[in-house]
Design a protein around this nucleic acid. Sequence first.
RNA 1: UGGGAGAUCGUCCAACGGUAGGACAACGGACUCUGACUCCGUUUAUCUAGGUUCGAAUCCUAGUCUCCCAGCCA
Length: 572
Amino acid sequence: MSSENPAPNHFIRQIVMDDLDSGKHASIATRFPPEPNGYLHIGHAKSICLNFGLAQEFGGRCNLRFDDTNPAKEEQEYVDAIKEDVTWLGFHWAELRHASDYFELFHRCALRLIQDGAAYVCDLNAEEVRAYRGTLTEPGRPSPYRDRTIAENLDLFARMRAGEFDDGARTLRAKIDMSSGNINLRDPALYRIRKVAHQNTGDAWCIYPMYDYAHALSDAFEGITHSLCTLEFEDHRPLYDWCLDRLPVWAMPELADELARLELKPGRSRQIEFSRLNLDFLVMSKRKLLALVTDGLVSGWDDARMPTLRGIRRRGYTPEALRNFVRNAGVTKQQSVLEYSLLENEVRNDLDVRAERRLAVIDPLRLTITNLPADHDELLTLSNHPKDESCGTRQVGFSSQLVIEREDFMEVPPKGFHRLVPGGEVRLRSVGIVKCEEVIKDDAGNVIELRCTLDLTSRPGGTGSDRKIKGTIHWVSTRHAMQAEVRLYDRLFTVADPDDDHDGKSYRDYLNPLSVRTVTAFLEGSLKAVEPESRFQFERLGYFVADRLDHRADRPVFNRICTLRDSYAKAK
RNA sequence: UGGGAGAUCGUCCAACGGUAGGACAACGGACUCUGACUCCGUUUAUCUAGGUUCGAAUCCUAGUCUCCCAGCCA
């Protein structure tokens, strides 16, 4: 099995250890808070590994919480997919929560804010609010409704809640500072009117809380100690803290019954930001990913080329490799773009250790052994893993009628070519050394068959088996082979930064037309009855996985996860 | 011209006033019945300018560059 090294230290882990050492927290609590409006991608893996990983390492707890405060965008389908993906990645949540579980609590808190004179109902519409807000460099102006009386605010808010007003007609706003340099503090909206059914609460509410308000309170309700999020929320932190300063939910009697009902143990949380995970040669924004799907540029969210967790899984990447990748990437506040090779490297590391070896030919060239009877039929016993005997052995059929990889033969080889050439010798993996005696061509001059003799003494255990030969190539016996659809994947984009839209280009202009190639390959017969998602190394070709969705015993489909490193190809 | 954040090899991460180190990438070599794996070696970095200090990636000052923010999205 693959090994996962201990967690390297990073600034958030250090904060956690300090808080534990100082006694600020007896144990920690984190949460992974996705909005169920799309599928999870590699970027989310960082947040998942960080939140769940920290809780795991320090004996704390980590909740999965759906940030479902905007019913217009969210769907149950995504909730289900996210749960499945988190589980696949290898994590278990302490509790499954929804922000919508707390709608009653949010509402009571809003009442408290109004009573404290810290929030008011504003009648400005969206456009007017924007005009009053000012700009990045100019302060905003107070809303004409800013100084309503508490009684008036209470009455208006009750009527908002009762559905008396249209969508967008009014908002509940925090009364903070219209001249703040931080735009988030210029009386941000706390509640808006949306007469939309919610996938969880149905028609119970027509006012829904905004992210900043709901998120800070949700963290506090759940007793989250460390609320980890990405850098773009850095200047939301003052608002996060404002909410908890005004609403010490752990000490508000009017919340007690509801908190008890939900079995919540609230506490004050601290928001800490880290930089997102970005990868080159990929796009990661939900919008662009969605466009790839809806425009049919890929086959779906689970297309094996997609950077979604479902796509990555479909492709055959292992959760272990993904976790190692994220761990090695580290956690900082520096914006960064990781090289895709880091991820591939982890996949190869993991699979080299655990994937059994098989023989397969994806671009066949006929090879006949002329000094063996035409009906020669033999079962060879091959080891499943060169470095792990516990993987056992398997039987592979061998005959005089074989196919080899077309690129393993060249009539006019370049210098340094170690494979088959006319009159030359090469070792057939686990069989022995063959010599190419004759090259058969069709009328067009294409090589269609190689006729070779096998040096019988070079067979395993034979007197000449140790004879040094430069090259070893793989093969499959046609009589014993099965054919299968094999999908050869390559990167989806041709440039390192597909998001770069200079020169009027867009990521669509950088799509790799060769990102998938489907071929019919010859596979050794032992591959016949494998389960979907089982992974193998096809020797010298790469790592392959039986497709999770399409693979069937009677119609096998394999995906290439990644190639092997190929120093020869690189040298060419 | 506002507010927030960040600058260390090609990439990512360390070094917490005391020899700038690791991983990946690249390059060279060894090994090899997978041109894989493994092993060995090499190249490459502290944004700039001042200052403090015996000593600065780290502290101070000034500047430069990059990213984020003007949703009733999250």
